[in-house]
Write a protein that binds this DNA or RNA. Structure first.
Lengths: 342, 342
DNA sequence: TATTATTTTGCAAGCGGTTGCAATATACTC
DNA sequence: GAGTATATTGCAACCGCTTGCAAAATAATA
């Protein structure tokens, strides 16, 4: 790396300065769009920089107190399209804003979440995007105290002091449940997601509200706990099937849960939607390819990522901007996994 | 960020030094596992660092010529599981090695690829992982000249001077084609991928080799160009269906292409596998959920990501290590999208 | 044209680390 | 216990860039 190659692309600000006959600070000013620079100087510098193929060293810039143009992204794990669609939106928007993205994966390891946040705060990134973080209380406070810009994506800060982007979970769940009721179902089960996440609670509340509004008594035995993953959903479904009075429909907290449920049903030789209606949540790409195709509540995942970036960008520009909440609309998508019963 | 908070987590090496009564260089040495440090000193420093919650500033470290512990990852776009599975493997392995990942997405914009590589080289990352890069010649040379550690994933450097991880594309395509021939097919079409990618050529060669070995004459009209994406595959399939003598089977360069083909067939009211057999390549998650389930050639995508990281790690440890090639085994996966014909 | 206000520019310090080299402390010999 | 080899530690310089402040250049005013 340190070879002084003749055609070494490691051009520094000093090289540009020397080559264009001005001081390095002037170069710095030009490159940062500082206004008090004579136009001719600016052009000259810009031209030389271009010619020499100068590219700023990010770490040096950030170390010197400027912006690093890097924002951190904390996600649980890159292994399902719920996450990757959000990340795609984030990446897209960040890229448009000429910002770099450094990815931190917690591998669903709670301690790591905290650890990463500390690293990020210590590392002079410009901001942080947290996608469905779990144990937030500890470090959210630290982030706030330091005025470190951050945005929560699909997670809620009960303290109400964080910018966040959410979807209409309650409404989505309400509509899904209502749809099932409309098809004649009365014994409707709900497989929850991770209890640490706000969306789980919000969806559960929507489900209950719909039952109530339509005079269907709420029966706790039909609410079983999942964790947004197939495996756990599989077990949860088995528990439901062991009930004396099996449900006739399952509302799954997300599509992966729905798929896990379908797997369990298949292993019990039950078919969807004949023996059991199923509704998911998210509308990940896979949902359109299950067999039967999954009826679900679409979340605008990519848009959620984009909105998160925008919220962060606003904070970056105006650091005292109060926390803001963006709530995106879900949409009920009818496909083939539900059937009317009598 | 610069607030001198009482509980400011921005602890520097100087703080640790002062607090533990040694010089900052000693702290640096301890933190970097340098050997010539007295055990008692080491412990004392480590203990203080821990207590103060010290976390190294990456940019400073990298600026000072040490390792940055950041590696760059260049990918086309985060929007399909081919990419995300590879990224998952990379992320996993990197995380295990305690390395950070900064993500560069080219959005399939060739100029951006080059631009990003330049940025990366100028930014003192420790290394670079390139997943299916397209226009490589220009910057691969620059990377080599600077001895900048990098690894190609699923792409081949014809100059033979790059470390790369590939899959047995030729063999995979050969087996797929052979399988179709074994089912009695003679008019077997091949929808190619992006011609800039090595895998496309390798698969095409495997397809041709299988035809030849089994005495099936190669007919150029059955090879149509795609680009690894559904849309283009859709059009390519339409072209095949417009032929006087339609093929009875389609071997698609990847699963997305296969799915695009299936969409086109459906729009022609043709059913798979009754009217047309289809084989894909990759075995992305979706392949198991198409209807009918897709017969395909599995690439160990996640493992490819992992291997890429390992190759890079080796280079990081021994910078004169000659370029190495890792070729991972593909595996033919029979599902329901092919049928025997007479 | 001298004087003063305003632009532009350059210098130096510092961001938080790493590292070569010299200085100091400790261990080993005789 | 003096002398020398070896293990530890500290100092200073530097990585590439930003920025406050002062100097130099230019424009405005009298």
């Amino acid at each position: 790396m340190s070879v002084k190659d003749p055609n070494n692309p490691k051009v520094t600000i000093y090289d540009v300065a020397r080559e264009s006959g001005v001081s390095y600070s002037t170069v710095s000013r030009v490159l940062n769009g500082f206004e008090f620079v004579k136009d001719t100087t600016r052009e000259k510098v810009l031209e030389t920089a271009e010619r020499l193929g100068y590219v700023a060293n990010l770490q040096a810039r950030s170390l010197a107190g400027g912006k690093s143009n890097v924002i951190g992204l904390l996600v649980p794990k890159i292994d399902n399209s719920y996450i990757t669609e959000i990340v795609a939106g984030i990446d897209d928007e960040l890229s448009a804003a000429n910002l770099n993205l450094i990815l931190y994966t917690t591998h669903r390891h709670i301690g790591k979440e905290q650890q990463n946040v500390k690293t990020i705060m210590g590392s002079m990134m410009d901001g942080l995007l947290l996608v469905v973080p779990l144990a937030t209380s500890s470090y959210l406070q630290a982030l706030r105290e330091l005025h470190f810009p951050y945005v929560l994506i699909d997670q809620h800060d009960y303290a109400g002091e964080s910018s966040e982007v959410l979807a209409t979970n309650h409404q989505g769940a309400y509509e899904a449940t209502e749809y099932l009721i409309g098809l004649g179902h009365r014994r409707i089960a709900f497989i929850t997601g991770l209890m640490e996440l706000y969306s789980t609670h919000d969806r559960l509340a929507g489900y209950k509200a719909a039952l109530k509004d339509h005079g269907v008594p709420f029966d706790p035995q039909y609410v079983v706990q999942g964790d947004f993953w197939k495996q756990e959903a599989y077990h949860a479904t088995n528990r439901l099937l062991a009930l004396d009075e099996r449900p006739t429909a399952i509302f799954a907290a997300n599509d992966l849960t729905a798929i896990g449920a379908m797997n369990a049903l298949r292993d019990h030789n039950l078919s969807v939607p004949e023996d059991m209606s199923i509704v998911g949540f998210d509308d990940i790409a896979q949902a359109a390819y299950t067999n039967p195709r999954l009826t679900t509540v679409r979340q605008p995942l990519e848009q959620m990522g984009r909105s998160g970036v925008n919220l962060l960008l606003q904070q970056l520009h105006d650091s005292d901007r109060p926390p803001q909440q963006v709530v995106l609309q879900t949409e009920f998508v009818v496909r083939d996994s539900c059937k009317r019963i009598d």
